[in-house]
Simulated scan of single mutants.
Amino acid sequence: MFVGVVRGTQFVPDERVFGGGHIRAVVDVREMLKGDPKPRFDVIDGLPLIGMCSASLRAGIEYVLFLDERNAVSMCNGTRPLGEKTYDRAVQVRELQDLKVRSER
């Protein structure tokens, strides 16, 4: 679990998955909340199709990211953008700090 900014995204074709592929994103880490610290992660996101849990990662946007064992993210596992107008950033930062404290116990 970490806060990071998407550096770039790329479609990766794969006929074995629904939609014919997935999105690979390179994310620069701003703050590790839980897990082994790294400066950058390559993550996998599903395609933003109706009914899917895609996090819809976009370059230049800051997110809180929850990775599974494949380094995959989704909005269904909690991954979400930070700093969007619908959220109060100060409240989000406090929530993330609380998550970090709880995970360290």
Rank of each mutant, 00 (worst) to 15 (best):
V3I: 15
V3W: 08
V3F: 07
V3M: 11
V3E: 06
V3Q: 03
G4C: 10
G4M: 08
G4S: 04
V5P: 01
V6M: 11
V6Y: 07
V6C: 13
V6P: 04
V6H: 11
R7V: 09
R7W: 06
G8A: 15
G8C: 14
G8P: 07
G8H: 12
G8L: 12
T9S: 08
T9A: 08
T9H: 02
T9F: 03
Q10C: 12
Q10K: 15
Q10N: 13
Q10D: 14
Q10Y: 08
Q10W: 07
F11K: 13
F11D: 14
F11L: 15
V12S: 10
V12P: 07
V12R: 13
V12F: 11
P13T: 10
D14A: 10
D14M: 09
E15Y: 08
E15N: 14
R16H: 12
R16Q: 13
R16Y: 09
V17P: 05
V17D: 05
V17E: 12
F18R: 15
F18S: 14
F18V: 10
F18L: 09
F18Y: 08
G19T: 10
G19L: 09
G19D: 12
G20E: 08
G20R: 06
G20S: 08
G20M: 07
G21W: 04
H22T: 06
I23N: 11
I23H: 10
I23P: 07
I23G: 06
I23S: 10
A25F: 06
A25G: 03
V26P: 06
V26T: 15
V27S: 11
V27M: 12
D28K: 13
D28Y: 05
D28R: 15
V29A: 06
V29K: 04
V29Q: 03
V29H: 05
V29R: 03
V29D: 07
R30K: 12
R30G: 04
R30Q: 10
E31I: 07
E31W: 11
E31P: 02
M32V: 01
L33F: 02
L33D: 03
L33Q: 00
L33I: 12
L33E: 02
L33W: 01
K34R: 05
K34Y: 08
K34C: 04
G35M: 00
G35R: 00
G35P: 00
G35F: 00
D36V: 04
D36G: 01
D36T: 06
D36Q: 11
D36E: 13
P37D: 00
P37L: 01
P37A: 01
K38Q: 05
P39N: 07
P39A: 04
R40L: 02
R40M: 02
R40A: 04
R40E: 10
F41D: 01
F41C: 00
F41G: 00
F41E: 02
F41K: 05
D42V: 15
D42G: 11
D42K: 14
D42S: 15
V43E: 06
V43N: 02
I44W: 03
G46K: 08
G46D: 15
G46F: 09
